[in-house]
Nucleic acid binder design. Sequence first.
DNA 1: CATGAATGAGCGTTCATTCAT
DNA 2: TATGAATGAACGCTCATTCAT
Lengths: 203, 203, 203, 203
Amino acid sequence: MADAADKREQLREERRRQILGAALTVFSKKGFHAANVSDVAAEAGVSQGTIYWYFDSKDDLLKAALLHFFADFGEVTLDALEHCQSAAEKLQALGQSMELFVKDAEGLFTLFLSYWSSSSQREEAGRWWIDLLVEYKDILVGIIEEGVRNGEFRPVDAEPLVWALMAAYDGLAAYLVLMPDIDLKRVNQAFIGTLLNGLLMES
Amino acid sequence: MADAADKREQLREERRRQILGAALTVFSKKGFHAANVSDVAAEAGVSQGTIYWYFDSKDDLLKAALLHFFADFGEVTLDALEHCQSAAEKLQALGQSMELFVKDAEGLFTLFLSYWSSSSQREEAGRWWIDLLVEYKDILVGIIEEGVRNGEFRPVDAEPLVWALMAAYDGLAAYLVLMPDIDLKRVNQAFIGTLLNGLLMES
Amino acid sequence: MADAADKREQLREERRRQILGAALTVFSKKGFHAANVSDVAAEAGVSQGTIYWYFDSKDDLLKAALLHFFADFGEVTLDALEHCQSAAEKLQALGQSMELFVKDAEGLFTLFLSYWSSSSQREEAGRWWIDLLVEYKDILVGIIEEGVRNGEFRPVDAEPLVWALMAAYDGLAAYLVLMPDIDLKRVNQAFIGTLLNGLLMES
Amino acid sequence: MADAADKREQLREERRRQILGAALTVFSKKGFHAANVSDVAAEAGVSQGTIYWYFDSKDDLLKAALLHFFADFGEVTLDALEHCQSAAEKLQALGQSMELFVKDAEGLFTLFLSYWSSSSQREEAGRWWIDLLVEYKDILVGIIEEGVRNGEFRPVDAEPLVWALMAAYDGLAAYLVLMPDIDLKRVNQAFIGTLLNGLLMES
DNA sequence: CATGAATGAGCGTTCATTCAT
DNA sequence: TATGAATGAACGCTCATTCAT
């Protein structure tokens, strides 16, 4: 009996994921407005009505899809930093993590903006995205300030610097959609390299 | 006769500008999709039909409005750099110029993305924006490479670095719409400061 | 075996009644169209699917609910008239019976009309309601004609008069939903009083 | 110039009327819910969009159509009473006026109920209908009370009686849609005749 | 028997665009 | 030129009904 309920719950979860995946695919391919709910339904192999059994609205669907993708990103990143010793190493690792993120998230930042910028509920829509950004910012600020305390880094105004750093990667995510030829690896190296140079104490 | 034609032409130009201004206002306030052509018409104080006498389509109107705003931006920036001597000074000046740009263009980068991301002709829609970015990138790369040649800067992979630099400011433009509390001046100082630190030859 | 079957049958009947009650509640509160099958299911504490095990369609459900309510109304009325002697007394009793009916059936006449007026099978949908009306009309006509035969009432064209009489009460049922302040008792007294005055032979 | 604006205004009014007529036709034939906006548009010979240029919503369209029909009914009735001397004559005239009204308004009372009973804004929808009813009631009460003051009628509780009277005709309007065979003339004669009999002083 | 998930036709409404004047 | 009226395709969403378990 409990098994049956469990199985049902499991199927439901699976179906949900299936729709979320389809939504991500379709929305990032066509954009939030150009994509129809029926496109998502077709991609997911379900009917339009089914979408609404799992999500309240097209808006809600996008929100869930983006969260589904980004939710555990902070956690993954933290894991990646665990085996780093110095703050400098952490920053390097972060750069690579963000490089990967930008590749994976191709178009998703843009997607969010396109959604947000025409949402009738900008306020609400922006809030959870801001939460995501702030959460990530705090991680980065922590690393920089740790470096400063260590004596590894010169004293810097960490928070503003981190905003610029993050903005650069989000901006790059957008650039990449427009100009896929940009060599992200080289950009990352030059950028992180120069920043580290600027941060490290001259020995 | 010629006078009359001139005057007519002049009136036409004025009306055009009036509509473009209204379009920029309305689009950046409500977003491309949420804003209607009739909103723009109302803001401009003309009828919907009139809009179509000056522009081919809503898409065309946005494109014209964005170009109208950004067209001479590269030139203005170059002017601002004229009285700078060293590459370092130029970079500082550029930072400030971009800071101003981000303030002025609040939401316009986002606006473009939201438009682009749902355009059925992404290729074409992206091209003129890319041209703008590339034009600006070349100016920046010129400055950095000049600094390297001068011996002011260490040798760096200029182009990738510049992409990151520009992406940072565009990303910040987007962040600012979400989080108006970000102190752009401090961000600029910390960011340019650190980059310069990383670029300058140790003396 | 037979007991088990009986019990099953009994349970089924009970469940049916439960759903009918819920349907009446929900439909008369929200109207036929505004109320969903799922609302009825929720009110009855069963699932949507269950509804369709007991009823063929939403239409069928409404029909059953209304019939369930009105079915034995004629009979009840006849019982109420049994201890009356004169036709005048009967008419008075009828007035009171209808007054009660109007109170109980508040909104049900309206409910039927709203259903009927958008049914794709008006003919069929109207028939059972008409049967109800005609059945009741015949009772009333019987009373009036009895009075005329008795010499209690003046000779009148009984059937048309009865239609007006019944229409008045159904109309009042509708009015009451719109204007709950109408004092039904006073209306009843004034109306029946005046009609009786008009019917009774001057002595 | 003024002529042009006038002509435009005139055309607009004409078009509006044309749509209202179509709405009344379609809605009363099919019912509010079963009828689509596109049905009305087709009947009026315009496109769906045009409907929305003249009316805010399907609801608004029905409201306007019903008001358009009923608005001046009170006035017309008052005119019809002008040449009557006694209150009794007035009541007779009223009966005939209502008889005509019931014929004309075939299905409109039902239409209102069907709309009202599923409107999400019952309150608001009911208010203007109530206003209409009250306005009419006051006219009738005036006549009865005049008769009482005259010594023509016995003293009666006028307002409740009038509610019943009006309800009878509205109810008949509904009955007629269900049972077109009812002979309204005979109903009217029997009903008004009996009521007058009940009202008039015995001489 | 009963459930909750799934279906998909159908609706009201919007809005970029065109047209008659 | 400029206007305001007109168009109609397209969309998000609902919900009565059916289905698999």
